[in-house]
Design a protein around this nucleic acid. Structure first.
Lengths: 208, 208
DNA sequence: CTGGTAGGCGTAGCTTGTACGCCTACAGGT
DNA sequence: ACCTGTAGGCGTACAAGCTACGCCTACCAG
């Protein structure tokens, strides 16, 4: 029992997040995090087994910021409104650390935070009268949409709309008339409106 | 004009894909691909500028396998049916090379293949009477759902359902009663049914 | 005061990407 | 037929990254 560890997991996590937010995902190296903490490179290995474990810590920290309490079912908030709140919370948490998007959504960490989120979403779906298989499908559809939409948003997405919205006309726009026509339209929609618009479509489908 | 290049882009792409399919994404190194091609490591650099460019080539090849012709609007195929076909084609193409999932969906390559796919989807949406802003939102929602669902499917997804479905009871299942209850249900649903189920919800939402 | 345990870290090896520069095969002019 | 310039092909070498290993030392218990 000699000596207490001088670094706590929260310290680790926050140092790693600092590095990522400052230098991007590529800057997340063992050395960089160690330096940020003021210890030697190998000193880090006292606290994490792996680079992988370090990344898991980052992801867990980002997702841990999600508020997973059921949204106050106060006044006339429909279950659709509640699900919208949950989706937005997920999006906001990840959006606060955009560099971690590939990490957070690609890795299949058994994240406690996502389990809490899922539990709350399931509860809301239950109040909507959705049960059994349909509820599982609804949960996964919501998660899939959220993951995909966040990714499109932060990675530019391979949608082609961005390309044409950014540089209309220039490329072989003639081959894609509808895409070319949609470019300016897409440009005029805010990220928020897009996210909520798609979500609304999904929620409308859930209501019988 | 002396000498013709001895390696063609398709050869490059197929060698890289072979490596990925065999050794996984981590096995995709310049050396490995060069060896697969029977050239020296540096010989590769005659054909690609970068490791990045090599990855782009892989992605483009995988997505290039998507059939983007409009589905035969033969008999009584509704626009919903047609969109389902398009979504399934995207899922199938990526699913053929599961290791490339993080690559294909994470990178924001201005993929020609995805542009063709988007164009066809826009056309189908147009026949459904969806135009302007709503059509852009619908396209992105479909793409977001597809990307997210494919990712959940192939990366195990951080949904928590997998964990509880695989090892029911063991973890602190008491903290997540609904999740625990849903585990077995989720287990009984095939990947196909899940993908189509979620998609159906989305399509139902698109129909007024 | 002392001994053992566990934290802390320096060294070094392996893997990876890639800059650089030499060698050589080939087409075309003489 | 020969020479020459261009571009393909590749070997060497280095930087950066992860991490196995093992020494040193601070600390707590007795």
């Amino acid at each position: 029992m000699p000596r207490r560890p001088s670094l706590t997991p929260p310290q680790l996590a926050s140092a790693a997040l600092d590095v990522v937010d400052r230098d991007g995902l590529a800057g997340l190296t063992m050395r960089a995090v160690a330096t940020q903490l003021g210890v030697s490179t190998m000193g880090l290995y006292r606290y994490v087994k792996d680079r992988d474990e370090l990344e898991a810590l980052v992801v867990e920290t980002v997702l841990g910021e999600i508020d997973t309490d059921p949204p106050a079912p106060a006044q006339g908030a429909s279950w659709q409104d509640q699900l919208t709140v949950m989706a937005r919370r997920l999006r906001d948490a990840v959006g606060t650390h955009p560099s971690t998007v590939p990490l957070a959504l690609t890795r299949r960490y058994r994240s406690q935070a996502i389990m809490r989120w899922s539990e709350t979403v399931l509860a809301i779906l239950a109040t909507a009268g959705i049960h059994g298989e349909q509820r599982v499908i609804a949960l996964r559809a919501l998660l899939a949409y959220a993951i995909g939409a966040i990714q499109l948003e932060h990675l530019g997405g391979p949608s082609g709309l961005d390309a044409l919205a950014a540089a209309p006309g220039t490329p072989a726009a003639g081959d894609f008339p509808l895409l070319a026509e949609s470019g300016p339209v897409a440009n005029a929609i805010t990220r928020d409106a897009e996210f909520h618009g798609g979500l609304a479509v999904l929620l409308r489908g859930l209501a019988r």
